[in-house]
Design a protein around this nucleic acid. Structure first.
Lengths: 169, 169
DNA sequence: GCTGGTTATGTTATAAGCTAACGCAACGGT
DNA sequence: ACCGTTGCGTTAGCTTATAACATAACCAGC
């Protein structure tokens, strides 16, 4: 286990970073959250979470399914993975990248009312969240001015992360 | 044809508004845009556009398919509808609501570089776009600060439109 | 340790969303 | 009339997601 610098949070982690602590952090947080909310972090949920959190990329439900099948031997039904993902999403450990029908782990433990801007790299698939209070306030204002009662706002940005655009242009 | 007030643009139209001018406006704009860009507003494209623009709601591709089947007698292949939708999206006449895998007509004719906040009512399904330059600048700043080169930003807000939350609470 | 309610997962089937590949047809310029 | 381009039809298949119902695991209280 090489000594790389700790992952940059928030933002994109160093590409050569040691991911083990990231993963461990997510799992630890899962244990806390599930415990606190009286939910059960079952074997299946833990395995699904581990797959999703095994990188900083967004993965499809069927990717998770395939990976679990490769590791675990037998193949689960899609619904099983979706159920686990739903639970993890509700717990706030995993978020859904709507613009890509994919899921990514939340490595940062931001507050309950998620007001994070999601950045998704088109090249490497990495996903990062950054704070955006001002942006969300602006959205709330704009919505309010239209007589709209906002319940949730989704901000997803596509583009190139630092590594990828540094490399290719 | 009753004389209701003209549709409120931008924002949500009055629920009892006369929709005919909205629809006619979209079609007229389509003719202009297709003409200007040397594209062909074919029968199929026009019919798909009419279905999408027949309300201020977002509709799924298969809804369009079903409605055309009901009207036109024979049932198209999904791909035909998707091709038409793609063309209309490229032309800027229809937008895709990513968070719902659905499509809605653009009734407002905003400038090319679309920087609009999309408001989608969870109850009635109505969709409206409102300007959000400041919001998008904030997003660009936040992305830039993370070393991210933004190519496109998506802002979709779920909630209750004026009519719906006035009615239900 | 059995019982019974609750929660989680398995099983089966299917809905919903989307696209590849290929061929014919319609359009439009020369 | 010809031919290149664009649009559409047809067939087939993939990806994403959920409904409905059965079984299993968990756990609180007796």
């Amino acid at each position: 286990m090489t000594m790389n610098r700790t992952p940059t949070v928030p933002g994109f982690p160093d590409p050569g970073h040691d991911h083990a602590p990231c993963l461990a952090g997510v799992i630890a947080r899962a244990e806390t959250i599930f415990e606190r909310n009286g939910m059960r972090l079952t074997e299946l949920r833990r395995r699904v979470l581990e797959e999703v959190a095994s990188s900083h990329r967004a993965v499809g439900a069927y990717d998770v399914l395939d990976r679990l099948a490769r590791k675990g031997g037998r193949r689960l039904a899609p619904i099983s993975v979706y159920r686990a993902l739903d639970t993890l999403v509700v717990a706030g450990l995993v978020h859904r990248l709507e613009s890509r029908n994919a899921y990514f782990a939340c490595h940062a433990a931001h507050p309950a009312n998620r007001r994070q801007i999601v950045l998704a790299c088109e090249q490497c698939g990495a996903v990062a969240e950054v704070a955006g209070s001002a942006v969300f306030e602006g959205i709330a204002d704009a919505a309010g001015a239209a007589g709209f009662r906002m319940s949730q706002a989704l901000v997803e940005v596509s583009g190139a992360c630092k590594e990828c655009h540094g490399r290719s242009s």
